[in-house]
């Protein structure tokens, strides 16, 4: 591998400057496409009071649940709690602050941050608890004002990545990861396969490397399936 300032040895070195109190985005839908190595590394670090932005905050006792049950998370932004009893229990007993965000608004708020858009109006959530305290404006329909969601760090996983940080995702593992990479100040990527620049065809780059600050070759992937159904 040619020298590249972005390439790190492993999760520990790539995450070494994470501190208590930071805002962290974490890619993945359920357990699909989660940054397993980064999550394990954070669970072994002595940091707390994290604000975590992630669709599910782990699931089925796995993924970010490892950090959740260590009580390292102060505030969580997510869209779905079902299938995550550890999160539901903490939410109902007010042990952590949870902001539930409709999933389309969630992804759009993250995308907006990466795109330099400060806020946008959407009909999603009008007339519900989500709209409480938000500015309402009538276009063709009543819409509520939603603001961009930023982060200090994002941890994401891709199938292939090169030493510049160009990424290629597999199947539905892409989900929120490219958006989070754009919204965070420092994006840390782990990959199943780290390759030299030039090995990913420019036509196939899903996320250009300009959005990636650190990348490393991941290892020991479990790639858990939550619900195996077959014919």
């Amino acid at each position: 591998m040619k020298q590249s300032p972005k390439v790190f040895k492993d999760a520990q070195t790539a995450l070494a400057d994470l501190k208590s109190g930071i805002t962290l985005m974490s890619g993945g839908f359920g357990l699909c496409g989660i940054a397993e190595n980064c999550i394990d590394a954070i669970s072994a670090m002595n940091i707390s009071d994290l604000t975590v932005i992630s669709n599910n905050i782990g699931n089925s006792g796995r993924g970010l649940v490892k950090i959740l049950v260590q009580d390292k998370i102060k505030k969580a932004y997510c869209s779905y709690v079902g299938g995550n009893p550890d999160l539901e229990e903490r939410l109902l007993n007010k042990k952590i602050d949870v902001e539930l965000v409709p999933q389309g608004t969630f992804s759009e708020r993250i995308r907006a941050a990466g795109m330099g858009i400060r806020a946008f109006y959407t009909p999603t959530g009008f007339g519900t608890l989500i709209a409480e305290g938000k500015d309402i404006k009538i276009f063709d329909r009543p819409c509520i004002l939603e603001t961009a969601l930023y982060a200090d760090y994002a941890i994401i996983k891709a199938e292939r990545g090169d030493s510049f940080g160009n990424l290629w995702f597999k199947e539905t593992a892409r989900n929120f990861s490219p958006l989070m990479a754009m919204a965070a100040k420092i994006t840390i990527v782990e990959v199943e396969e780290l390759v030299e620049v030039g090995e990913i065809d420019p036509n196939d780059v899903h996320l250009p490397g300009i959005f990636v600050q650190r990348i490393f070759q991941g290892k020991n992937y479990k790639n858990d399936i939550e619900f195996l159904v077959t014919k």
Binding site: G82, P102, T128
Partner: peptide, 15 residues
Amino acid sequence: KKVTGMGGAMDLVNG
């Protein structure tokens, strides 16, 4: 009692 979260439902019903 129970929170499943809205997931994509709020977007789906409006879109």
